[in-house]
């Protein structure tokens, strides 16, 4: 296969996979079952890992392969396993109890995606791979914020935070040629793992103290 053909294919494959990430994000917003939410997050991370692998293959950049593998191990295997275990250990209801129903959430997220596209239009010239990847990354970020507001259970807020993080990592792939230096990627990877463990500890303690994971009940501190 000639190098230009590979580049051509991957410049189509990467936006396709990025779009699929957004589709998964929308499914996540519509879906009310907690365990399915965790699975959807794993699928989204798998797509991110795939994008990193395509970039690495394209530029023959070994350190991006490391990123792909780390994303796979961390976000596709380890974190979903950890979150699953937490769900079983604290025995919570499966329903995530969103504040807004699915149709209105979808409308808001469509508006947020459009906003992402219009905001990034001046910056499309920055992108190396795929024209709309940055717009999708921003859409993931914004819908992640919405997901955070719309869900009241502590554990679903953790998931929302992780999708925001996926959006930022997608932006890193979209904006830079070879991704970030390896030491930075390692630092981010390590931080995300520790962050979820810390959040898990807090979720567990909140559940013990409040007999609930509803963050709406965390309203004592004001002013």
């Amino acid at each position: 296969m000639h190098p230009p053909t590979t580049l051509e294919i991957s410049s189509q494959v990467i936006p396709l996979m990025a779009t699929l990430m957004l589709v998964v994000q929308l499914l996540l917003i519509a879906q009310r079952m907690l365990l399915t939410n965790i699975r959807l997050f794993a699928i989204q991370s798998l797509l991110l890992s795939g994008i990193a692998a395509v970039v690495a293959f394209n530029y023959n950049a070994s350190h991006v392969y490391v990123v792909a593998v780390l994303t796979f191990i961390g976000k596709v295997v380890f974190l979903p396993w950890l979150l699953n275990r937490l769900v079983h250990r604290i025995q919570i209801h499966q329903d995530v109890e969103p504040l807004l129903n699915a149709p209105s959430s979808m409308l808001i997220c469509a508006a947020l995606t459009l906003l992402g596209y219009s905001v990034t239009r001046p910056f499309t010239s920055l992108e190396k791979l795929g024209n709309n990847t940055l717009a999708i990354a921003l859409a993931l970020l914004l819908t992640g914020f919405f997901l955070m507001i719309n869900r009241r259970k502590a554990l679903t807020q953790v998931l929302a935070l992780l999708t925001v993080e996926n959006g930022v990592m997608l932006a890193a792939v979209a904006l830079t040629t070879y991704g970030m230096p390896l030491v930075v990627e390692l630092g981010i990877f390590f931080d995300v793992m520790v962050a979820v463990m810390v959040l898990g500890i807090l979720v567990y303690r909140i559940r013990e103290n409040f007999d609930s994971m509803d963050t709406g009940k965390l309203d004592q501190l004001k002013g």
């Binding site: 935070l161 959040l199 807090l202 303690r205 909140i206 103290n209 409040f210």
Partner: peptide, 22 residues
């Protein structure tokens, strides 16, 4: 201290802090 208020404070701190840091 693992009291209700300290857990609430910690949760706000970590969620706002993590979003900010993202």
């Amino acid at each position: 201290y693992n009291r209700r208020n300290s857990l609430e404070a910690a949760w706000k701190y970590v969620i706002l802090g993590s979003l900010g840091l993202a």
